[in-house]
Protein backbone atom coordinates (compact mmCIF):
# COMPACT_ATOMS: atom_id res chain seq x y z
CA UNK A 1 0.00 0.00 0.00
CA UNK A 2 1.29 3.43 -1.02
CA UNK A 3 0.73 6.09 1.65
CA UNK A 4 0.07 9.61 0.40
CA UNK A 5 0.07 12.32 3.07
CA UNK A 6 -1.96 15.44 2.61
CA UNK A 7 -2.99 18.65 4.30
CA UNK A 8 -6.31 20.45 3.97
CA UNK A 9 -5.91 24.22 4.07
CA UNK A 10 -9.30 25.85 4.66
CA UNK A 11 -11.88 23.79 6.50
CA UNK A 12 -15.22 25.23 5.36
CA UNK A 13 -17.80 23.61 3.11
CA UNK A 14 -15.22 22.29 0.65
CA UNK A 15 -12.49 21.33 3.12
CA UNK A 16 -14.95 19.40 5.25
CA UNK A 17 -16.45 17.81 2.13
CA UNK A 18 -12.99 16.53 1.25
CA UNK A 19 -12.57 15.08 4.75
CA UNK A 20 -15.97 13.40 4.56
CA UNK A 21 -15.36 11.89 1.17
CA UNK A 22 -11.93 10.55 2.18
CA UNK A 23 -13.67 8.91 5.13
CA UNK A 24 -16.55 7.48 3.16
CA UNK A 25 -14.38 6.27 0.26
CA UNK A 26 -11.61 4.76 2.38
CA UNK A 27 -12.37 1.18 1.29
CA UNK A 28 -12.52 2.18 -2.38
CA UNK A 29 -9.23 4.07 -2.15
CA UNK A 30 -7.43 1.26 -0.27
CA UNK A 31 -8.51 -1.22 -2.93
CA UNK A 32 -6.46 0.79 -5.40
CA UNK A 33 -3.41 0.30 -3.21
CA UNK A 34 -3.52 3.84 -1.87
CA UNK A 35 -3.75 5.02 1.71
CA UNK A 36 -4.68 8.70 2.05
CA UNK A 37 -3.41 10.10 5.32
CA UNK A 38 -4.40 13.65 6.34
CA UNK A 39 -1.55 14.98 8.47
CA UNK A 40 -2.70 18.58 8.85
CA UNK A 41 -5.84 20.72 8.68
CA UNK A 42 -5.91 24.52 8.85
CA UNK A 43 -8.63 27.12 9.18
CA UNK A 44 -8.41 30.80 10.04
CA UNK A 45 -8.05 29.94 13.73
CA UNK A 46 -5.00 27.71 13.43
CA UNK A 47 -4.08 24.07 12.77
CA UNK A 48 -4.40 20.53 13.80
CA UNK A 49 -1.28 18.53 12.99
CA UNK A 50 -0.70 14.80 13.43
CA UNK A 51 1.89 12.98 11.36
CA UNK A 52 0.21 9.65 12.13
CA UNK A 53 -3.04 10.82 10.56
CA UNK A 54 -5.81 13.02 11.89
CA UNK A 55 -9.10 11.60 13.14
CA UNK A 56 -11.23 13.29 10.45
CA UNK A 57 -14.61 12.77 12.09
CA UNK A 58 -13.17 14.20 15.30
CA UNK A 59 -11.93 17.26 13.41
CA UNK A 60 -15.32 17.85 11.77
CA UNK A 61 -17.06 17.57 15.16
CA UNK A 62 -14.61 19.91 16.87
CA UNK A 63 -15.02 22.43 14.06
CA UNK A 64 -18.77 22.32 14.48
CA UNK A 65 -18.64 22.63 18.27
CA UNK A 66 -15.88 25.19 18.76
CA UNK A 67 -15.82 26.99 15.43
CA UNK A 68 -12.23 26.01 14.74
CA UNK A 69 -10.25 22.91 14.00
CA UNK A 70 -7.17 24.31 15.76
CA UNK A 71 -5.38 22.34 18.42
CA UNK A 72 -2.10 24.21 18.09
CA UNK A 73 -0.96 27.73 17.37
CA UNK A 74 0.89 26.94 14.12
CA UNK A 75 -0.34 28.77 11.01
CA UNK A 76 -1.22 27.31 7.61
CA UNK A 77 2.19 28.54 6.45
CA UNK A 78 3.97 26.56 9.19
CA UNK A 79 1.94 23.47 8.36
CA UNK A 80 2.70 23.70 4.64
CA UNK A 81 6.40 24.44 4.99
CA UNK A 82 7.39 22.39 8.03
CA UNK A 83 5.27 19.24 8.09
CA UNK A 84 6.29 16.49 5.69
CA UNK A 85 3.56 15.54 3.20
CA UNK A 86 3.00 15.11 -0.52
CA UNK A 87 -0.15 17.08 -1.38
CA UNK A 88 -1.86 20.23 -0.11
CA UNK A 89 -5.57 20.68 -0.77
CA UNK A 90 -6.02 24.45 -0.89
CA UNK A 91 -9.65 25.43 -0.12
CA UNK A 92 -9.48 28.90 1.43
CA UNK A 93 -11.83 31.68 0.25
CA UNK A 94 -11.46 33.06 -3.27
CA UNK A 95 -9.93 36.51 -3.41
CA UNK A 96 -9.50 38.12 -6.81
CA UNK A 97 -7.79 41.28 -5.60
CA UNK A 98 -4.47 39.72 -4.59
CA UNK A 99 -5.26 36.00 -4.42
CA UNK A 100 -4.45 35.73 -0.72
CA UNK A 101 -4.23 33.70 1.41
CA UNK A 102 -4.44 31.01 -1.28
CA UNK A 103 -1.66 32.35 -3.50
CA UNK A 104 0.95 32.32 -0.77
CA UNK A 105 -0.20 28.87 0.38
CA UNK A 106 0.23 27.50 -3.14
CA UNK A 107 3.60 29.18 -3.73
CA UNK A 108 4.86 27.92 -0.36
CA UNK A 109 3.75 24.39 -1.18
CA UNK A 110 5.37 24.37 -4.62
CA UNK A 111 8.55 25.83 -3.13
CA UNK A 112 8.73 23.13 -0.49
CA UNK A 113 8.16 20.21 -2.86
CA UNK A 114 4.44 19.65 -2.37
CA UNK A 115 1.87 18.98 -5.05
CA UNK A 116 -1.11 21.36 -5.12
CA UNK A 117 -4.79 20.51 -5.55
CA UNK A 118 -7.14 23.46 -5.25
CA UNK A 119 -10.72 24.67 -5.53
CA UNK A 120 -9.66 28.29 -5.05
CA UNK A 121 -10.03 30.34 -8.25
CA UNK A 122 -8.47 33.59 -7.06
CA UNK A 123 -4.77 32.75 -7.38
CA UNK A 124 -5.41 31.03 -10.73
CA UNK A 125 -7.34 33.94 -12.19
CA UNK A 126 -4.41 36.22 -11.34
CA UNK A 127 -1.24 34.13 -11.63
CA UNK A 128 -2.03 30.93 -13.52
CA UNK A 129 1.08 30.79 -15.67
CA UNK A 130 3.43 31.50 -12.75
CA UNK A 131 1.88 28.73 -10.68
CA UNK A 132 1.95 26.24 -13.51
CA UNK A 133 5.52 27.08 -14.43
CA UNK A 134 6.66 26.76 -10.85
CA UNK A 135 5.02 23.35 -10.53
CA UNK A 136 6.64 22.19 -13.77
CA UNK A 137 10.07 23.51 -12.77
CA UNK A 138 9.85 21.59 -9.51
CA UNK A 139 8.43 18.43 -11.07
CA UNK A 140 5.17 18.76 -9.13
CA UNK A 141 1.49 18.42 -9.94
CA UNK A 142 -0.75 21.48 -9.96
CA UNK A 143 -4.36 20.42 -10.32
CA UNK A 144 -7.52 22.52 -10.13
CA UNK A 145 -10.43 20.52 -11.57
CA UNK A 146 -12.90 21.82 -8.95
CA UNK A 147 -12.17 25.51 -9.64
CA UNK A 148 -14.40 25.41 -12.74
CA UNK A 149 -17.77 23.70 -12.89
CA UNK A 150 -17.58 22.11 -9.42
CA UNK A 151 -18.22 18.42 -9.97
CA UNK A 152 -18.08 18.69 -13.77
CA UNK A 153 -14.71 17.33 -14.96
CA UNK A 154 -13.91 19.81 -17.73
CA UNK A 155 -10.10 19.74 -17.54
CA UNK A 156 -9.90 16.00 -17.13
CA UNK A 157 -12.14 15.58 -20.14
CA UNK A 158 -10.15 17.90 -22.38
CA UNK A 159 -6.62 16.97 -21.24
CA UNK A 160 -7.07 13.23 -20.76
CA UNK A 161 -10.14 11.81 -22.48
CA UNK A 162 -9.96 14.14 -25.48
CA UNK A 163 -6.18 14.20 -25.82
CA UNK A 164 -5.26 14.67 -29.49
CA UNK A 165 -8.11 17.06 -30.16
CA UNK A 166 -7.56 20.74 -30.79
CA UNK A 167 -10.18 22.75 -28.97
CA UNK A 168 -11.76 25.35 -31.24
CA UNK A 169 -13.96 26.95 -28.64
CA UNK A 170 -15.78 26.46 -25.38
CA UNK A 171 -19.12 27.83 -24.28
CA UNK A 172 -20.69 27.17 -20.94
CA UNK A 173 -22.74 28.14 -17.93
CA UNK A 174 -20.27 28.21 -15.06
CA UNK A 175 -22.20 29.98 -12.33
CA UNK A 176 -25.05 28.11 -10.67
CA UNK A 177 -26.39 31.18 -8.87
CA UNK A 178 -26.99 33.09 -12.10
CA UNK A 179 -28.45 30.04 -13.76
CA UNK A 180 -30.87 29.59 -10.87
CA UNK A 181 -31.94 33.24 -10.96
CA UNK A 182 -32.50 33.30 -14.73
CA UNK A 183 -34.31 29.95 -14.67
CA UNK A 184 -36.67 31.05 -11.89
CA UNK A 185 -37.29 34.48 -13.46
CA UNK A 186 -38.30 32.79 -16.71
CA UNK A 187 -40.46 30.12 -15.09
CA UNK A 188 -42.27 32.38 -12.61
CA UNK A 189 -42.16 35.67 -14.55
CA UNK A 190 -40.74 37.35 -11.50
CA UNK A 191 -38.43 40.37 -11.45
CA UNK A 192 -34.73 39.99 -10.77
CA UNK A 193 -34.79 41.54 -7.28
CA UNK A 194 -37.44 39.12 -6.00
CA UNK A 195 -35.74 36.01 -7.32
CA UNK A 196 -32.40 37.18 -5.96
CA UNK A 197 -33.96 37.47 -2.52
CA UNK A 198 -35.39 33.98 -2.82
CA UNK A 199 -31.99 32.63 -3.87
CA UNK A 200 -30.38 34.33 -0.88
CA UNK A 201 -32.93 32.78 1.48
CA UNK A 202 -32.20 29.36 0.01
CA UNK A 203 -28.45 29.86 0.41
CA UNK A 204 -27.95 29.73 -3.36
CA UNK A 205 -26.86 33.37 -3.55
CA UNK A 206 -24.50 35.14 -1.14
CA UNK A 207 -25.57 38.11 1.02
CA UNK A 208 -23.40 40.21 -1.29
CA UNK A 209 -24.23 38.67 -4.67
CA UNK A 210 -22.04 41.05 -6.72
CA UNK A 211 -19.38 38.50 -7.45
CA UNK A 212 -21.88 36.10 -9.03
CA UNK A 213 -24.48 38.35 -10.67
CA UNK A 214 -22.00 40.78 -12.21
CA UNK A 215 -20.30 37.87 -13.96
CA UNK A 216 -17.01 38.15 -12.04
CA UNK A 217 -17.03 34.54 -10.82
CA UNK A 218 -17.79 33.35 -14.35
CA UNK A 219 -14.96 35.47 -15.72
CA UNK A 220 -12.46 33.95 -13.27
CA UNK A 221 -13.46 30.49 -14.42
CA UNK A 222 -13.15 31.50 -18.05
CA UNK A 223 -9.64 32.75 -17.37
CA UNK A 224 -8.69 29.37 -15.91
CA UNK A 225 -10.12 27.67 -19.01
CA UNK A 226 -8.22 30.01 -21.32
CA UNK A 227 -4.94 29.37 -19.52
CA UNK A 228 -5.38 25.65 -19.12
CA UNK A 229 -6.94 24.74 -22.46
CA UNK A 230 -5.90 27.50 -24.85
CA UNK A 231 -2.56 28.23 -23.16
CA UNK A 232 -3.39 31.93 -23.28
CA UNK A 233 -1.55 33.77 -20.54
CA UNK A 234 -4.56 35.94 -19.73
CA UNK A 235 -5.89 37.21 -16.43
CA UNK A 236 -9.26 38.24 -15.13
CA UNK A 237 -8.76 41.73 -16.56
CA UNK A 238 -8.78 40.40 -20.14
CA UNK A 239 -12.41 39.27 -20.03
CA UNK A 240 -15.26 41.30 -21.49
CA UNK A 241 -17.94 41.00 -18.78
CA UNK A 242 -21.69 41.74 -18.71
CA UNK A 243 -23.77 40.52 -15.76
CA UNK A 244 -27.43 39.63 -15.38
CA UNK A 245 -28.74 42.46 -13.16
CA UNK A 246 -30.47 44.34 -16.01
CA UNK A 247 -32.44 41.36 -17.29
CA UNK A 248 -36.22 41.70 -17.09
CA UNK A 249 -38.89 38.99 -16.89
CA UNK A 250 -40.43 40.55 -20.02
CA UNK A 251 -37.23 39.96 -21.97
CA UNK A 252 -37.21 36.33 -20.86
CA UNK A 253 -40.83 35.98 -21.89
CA UNK A 254 -40.22 37.46 -25.34
CA UNK A 255 -37.26 35.14 -25.77
CA UNK A 256 -39.31 32.16 -24.64
CA UNK A 257 -42.12 32.91 -27.10
CA UNK A 258 -39.50 32.64 -29.81
CA UNK A 259 -38.06 29.41 -28.42
CA UNK A 260 -35.05 30.82 -26.64
CA UNK A 261 -33.86 30.90 -23.06
CA UNK A 262 -31.44 33.53 -21.76
CA UNK A 263 -28.33 32.25 -19.97
CA UNK A 264 -25.17 33.84 -18.64
CA UNK A 265 -22.71 32.29 -21.07
CA UNK A 266 -18.93 32.11 -20.78
CA UNK A 267 -17.31 31.93 -24.15
CA UNK A 268 -13.71 31.29 -25.17
CA UNK A 269 -12.57 30.98 -28.76
CA UNK A 270 -11.33 33.15 -31.64
CA UNK A 271 -8.94 34.72 -29.18
CA UNK A 272 -11.70 36.47 -27.24
CA UNK A 273 -13.07 35.87 -23.75
CA UNK A 274 -16.62 36.97 -23.07
CA UNK A 275 -19.09 36.59 -20.25
CA UNK A 276 -22.54 37.86 -21.26
CA UNK A 277 -26.21 36.96 -21.23
CA UNK A 278 -27.00 35.16 -24.48
CA UNK A 279 -29.95 33.66 -26.29
CA UNK A 280 -29.79 29.87 -26.24
CA UNK A 281 -32.26 27.82 -28.33
CA UNK A 282 -34.51 25.90 -25.92
CA UNK A 283 -33.46 22.51 -27.24
CA UNK A 284 -29.77 23.28 -27.34
CA UNK A 285 -27.57 21.18 -25.01
CA UNK A 286 -26.46 24.38 -23.26
CA UNK A 287 -30.04 25.13 -22.17
CA UNK A 288 -29.82 23.51 -18.73
CA UNK A 289 -31.90 24.86 -15.85
CA UNK A 290 -31.73 25.29 -12.09
CA UNK A 291 -28.29 25.60 -10.56
CA UNK A 292 -26.69 23.25 -13.09
CA UNK A 293 -23.43 24.05 -14.81
CA UNK A 294 -22.66 23.00 -18.36
CA UNK A 295 -19.74 23.19 -20.76
CA UNK A 296 -19.87 22.61 -24.48
CA UNK A 297 -16.51 21.96 -26.06
CA UNK A 298 -16.03 22.19 -29.81
CA UNK A 299 -13.00 20.33 -31.13
CA UNK A 300 -11.59 19.46 -34.53
CA UNK A 301 -11.79 15.67 -34.26
CA UNK A 302 -14.62 14.92 -31.86
CA UNK A 303 -16.91 17.77 -32.88
CA UNK A 304 -19.02 18.99 -30.02
CA UNK A 305 -18.97 17.38 -26.58
CA UNK A 306 -21.23 18.75 -23.87
CA UNK A 307 -21.15 17.87 -20.17
CA UNK A 308 -23.27 19.18 -17.36
CA UNK A 309 -23.63 18.63 -13.66
CA UNK A 310 -23.52 20.26 -10.25
CA UNK A 311 -21.32 23.31 -10.16
CA UNK A 312 -21.16 23.63 -6.39
CA UNK A 313 -21.83 21.88 -3.11
CA UNK A 314 -19.57 20.48 -0.45
CA UNK A 315 -19.43 16.83 -1.55
CA UNK A 316 -19.81 17.59 -5.28
CA UNK A 317 -16.80 19.88 -5.21
CA UNK A 318 -14.91 17.32 -3.12
CA UNK A 319 -15.57 14.79 -5.88
CA UNK A 320 -13.33 16.76 -8.26
CA UNK A 321 -10.73 17.34 -5.55
CA UNK A 322 -10.60 13.66 -4.69
CA UNK A 323 -10.17 12.79 -8.35
CA UNK A 324 -7.20 15.20 -8.58
CA UNK A 325 -5.70 13.77 -5.38
CA UNK A 326 -6.04 10.20 -6.66
CA UNK A 327 -4.52 11.18 -10.00
CA UNK A 328 -1.44 12.42 -8.17
CA UNK A 329 -1.38 9.40 -5.85
CA UNK A 330 -1.44 7.01 -8.80
CA UNK A 331 1.18 8.88 -10.79
CA UNK A 332 3.76 9.71 -8.16
Amino acid sequence: MKTIRLSIIGFGAVGQGVARSILSKQGYINKQGINLCVVGIADSGGCEIDDKGIDLMGAITRKKQTGTVATCAESAFDLISNVEHEIIVEATPTNIKDGEPGLNNMLTALNSGKNVVTSNKGPLALRFSDLKEMAEDNGLFFRYESTVGGAVPIFNLVHEAMAGNTVIGIEGILNGTCNYILTRMAEERLPYELVLKEAQELGIAETDPTYDVEGIDSACKLVIIANSIFQDAVTYRDVDITGITKITPEALELASKNNYVVKLICEAGNGTLTVAPRLVPKRHPLAVGGTLNVASILTDLAGRITISGKGAGSIETASSILSDVLHIARNS
Binding site: E171, I247, A255, A276, P277, R278, L279, P281, H284, R304
Partner: peptide
Protein backbone atom coordinates in the same frame (compact mmCIF):
# COMPACT_ATOMS: atom_id res chain seq x y z
CA UNK B 1 -29.37 49.35 -23.94
CA UNK B 2 -28.43 45.80 -23.01
CA UNK B 3 -28.22 43.76 -26.20
CA UNK B 4 -28.52 40.01 -25.86
CA UNK B 5 -27.15 38.10 -28.82
CA UNK B 6 -27.39 34.38 -29.55
CA UNK B 7 -24.60 32.00 -28.59
CA UNK B 8 -21.95 32.04 -31.29
CA UNK B 9 -20.31 28.68 -31.40
CA UNK B 10 -22.04 26.07 -33.44
CA UNK B 11 -25.38 27.50 -32.42
CA UNK B 12 -27.48 25.33 -34.72
CA UNK B 13 -28.20 22.88 -31.91
CA UNK B 14 -27.58 19.16 -32.40
Amino acid sequence: LLMIEPIRLNSEGA
